[in-house]
Write a protein that binds this DNA or RNA. Sequence first.
DNA 1: TGCTATAATAGTCAAAGATGGTCAAAAGAA
DNA 2: TTCTTTTGACCATCTTTGACTATTATAGCA
Lengths: 160, 160
Amino acid sequence: MAQLSDNIEQFIKELMSEDAHIELRRNELAQHFGCAPSQINYVLATRFSVDHGYIIESRRGGGGYVRIVRMQTRGEENLLESLLKRVGNSVDEETAGAIISNLYERKLVTKNEALLMKSAVSRNALALPISAKDVLRAAVFRNMLMQVFKNHEEAKRDDV
Amino acid sequence: MAQLSDNIEQFIKELMSEDAHIELRRNELAQHFGCAPSQINYVLATRFSVDHGYIIESRRGGGGYVRIVRMQTRGEENLLESLLKRVGNSVDEETAGAIISNLYERKLVTKNEALLMKSAVSRNALALPISAKDVLRAAVFRNMLMQVFKNHEEAKRDDV
DNA sequence: TGCTATAATAGTCAAAGATGGTCAAAAGAA
DNA sequence: TTCTTTTGACCATCTTTGACTATTATAGCA
């Protein structure tokens, strides 16, 4: 069942398919979808976070706007490094999920690989007290991240 | 006398006669049968479990759903079941690795996927006392195994 | 010109709403 | 009795809304 949030997400992604950044009016968009303006913030927070690979800028007042910018892809070595740093010793499921989605959007992993990674770091998989969960998730996730990049290096070598 | 559970089971199976996967609202279905919503979970647990050849996914909150996926081929269905049984509540790295290699040989996972799985269940990933390690590894592994089979079903669907 | 009030935006956060999950006790069947 | 089914209370998760707050541009006034 298509949720309002899903629809808004889709709408924004379509707008962004042409350009790497768009600017919109929060209130207009809310009116277009017949919802509370803060709904837009919810969608941005849950689907367009930095971990998802987007940056939000905005301005209030007359002529205000919300700008969504798709982060440019950095070099891969850099990316692995920064992702490992981001994950650190502890990471929650939401953040890990966002990062995985982002890897998929960057075509660094296939859909199946992404799903596999999500299943490995899911709540279900890590049956431990919550605090320990995040720590463990980080360890498993870091390992998989490194593997993703190894796979990728391997693939490039094969291409040649 | 046909039990409520039997009726619900039949109802779901009829829905699934056309498609290998359906999505339903737990509450709606419960209302349709005039029973407690948790009754649906009972039916799913007792008649649509992995060893019956089904996999259940769900989501809570607004727009939530329960999705039932039928494993299409007998051989694979048995395979997942027996693998899950073999893994059980505890599994060492070697055994997990052997199973993953086997999945690769059967072409149920790609090489990259296999490596990813190995990285998730490796010693390194599960930084815990050894005894707990095997238990945790089993949990993570079971989750990934189910995902592998879900991916496979998905792929078959896409082929069509 | 410089200041101020007002209008036009956007942000935050907590509460309410909408689902599904779990588990143990009660009820029913074998 | 013993096993299976059914129910209900309580929990977890995700979405939507609304009241209150913060910021900015601009028109009007001193």
